[in-house]
């Protein structure tokens, strides 16, 4: 592992800064990519006006958000209202600490790596709830309530599917999990069957955790105006948007490491580029899902989770354990 400084603080801070800024930059680029991609899916060109081929569109969007007036409603709880947009991005970025970018490049190869990622992912409902509660707006509160219900429900299948690579490896360390998938023995492919199901289920629940379509109940602009973000303006609003994208990007990276072999590509070598390619491909799949599917209804979503996904996750865990012990 590359250690930039002897001091773990400095190493973490510098590499963390690089990773955080890269994630935010990639997110800005991803916004343009998504709009172009959605345009193609709907047989239209997407943004073309700002800069050549619309390349400067994210810059223009960012500048616009920076300039907009930040309004705090008179009825809101001012401190919590302004705290929530900050915390929501922190919760989204924090999971990046344990992403194994390559065999050498990691902010922190914690022996509890997977747990750190899952714990940070499950922080997400808290700032959203703070935002919904402090807005003192009925739409915002309804959106926040649904987010918390959805977030904590989908955390259970997320944990259960993440257990599949943990059982197969016998370690929580991200580096170990990727190393155990060397030579293309990806957990998405190798125990044939359950690995693939676990991978799809992990991606689905990660979608639900980051509140993306088809699980974007909390926002649900056609029912709840804009859910928790209804009272937010300018960059405060931008933070929620940013957090959603960063969260799904981090989730793609974690999924790539847990199920798709991370930085390793067998005979084609290994390295940072493979990890980035897999992560971005998964991210593109998330965009693809967003522009293909409709939104679930809130009650359908809860029933899907508790009636189908939780028993399925338990079944996967037991099947994997059987494989591990007896095969």
């Amino acid at each position: 592992m590359i250690v930039l400084f002897d001091s773990p603080w400095l190493h973490g801070a510098l590499l963390g800064l690089v990773v955080s800024v890269s994630l935010l930059t990639v997110t800005a680029a991803g916004l343009l990519y998504e709009r172009k991609f959605a345009g193609r899916l709907q047989n239209r060109p997407g943004p073309t006006e700002v800069g050549p081929w619309g390349l400067l569109q994210p810059v223009a969007d960012g500048l616009k958000l920076f300039q907009k007036e930040q309004i705090v409603p008179a009825a809101a709880q001012r401190f919590l209202f302004l705290l929530a947009p900050l915390l929501v991005v922190v919760a989204a970025l924090a999971g990046a600490a344990v992403i194994p970018w390559s065999a050498e490049l990691m902010v922190a190869d914690l022996h509890m790596g997977v747990l750190w990622a899952l714990a940070m992912a499950s922080l997400m409902p808290l700032p959203v709830w703070i935002a919904g509660w402090s807005s003192n707006n009925k739409y915002a509160l309804l959106g926040a309530m649904r987010t918390v219900a959805q977030g904590i429900s989908y955390e259970v299948p997320l944990l259960l599917t993440a257990l599949v690579p943990i059982i197969l490896t016998g370690s929580f360390r991200m580096g170990d999990i990727v190393a155990a998938q060397a030579d293309l023995r990806w957990f998405a492919l190798w125990p044939p069957g359950p690995g693939a199901v676990a991978f799809v289920l992990f991606l689905l629940t990660a979608l639900a955790e980051s509140n993306r379509i088809p699980f974007d109940i909390p926002e649900a602009e056609s029912e709840l105006v804009a859910g928790v973000t209804v009272e937010y303006t300018g960059m405060n609003f931008g933070m929620f948007y940013l957090a959603e994208y960063v969260h799904s990007l981090v989730a793609s990276a974690i999924a790539a490491a847990l199920f798709l072999g991370g930085w390793d590509m067998g005979p084609l070598g290994s390295g940072l580029h493979w990890m980035l390619l897999k992560t971005l491909l998964l991210w593109a799949v998330i965009f693809w899902i967003r522009w293909t599917l409709l939104r679930f209804r809130s009650d359908q979503l809860m029933e899907l989770c508790w009636r189908w996904l939780v028993p399925l996750g338990l079944g996967l865990v037991l099947f994997t354990a059987t494989w591990k012990v007896f095969a």
């Binding site: 963390g16 900050l86 970025l93």
Partner: peptide
Amino acid sequence: DPSWLSALALLAVALVVP
């Protein structure tokens, strides 16, 4: 394990950047 300190440092950066 010193990597915990690195993770905490990232948490601090993730607070400072936004």
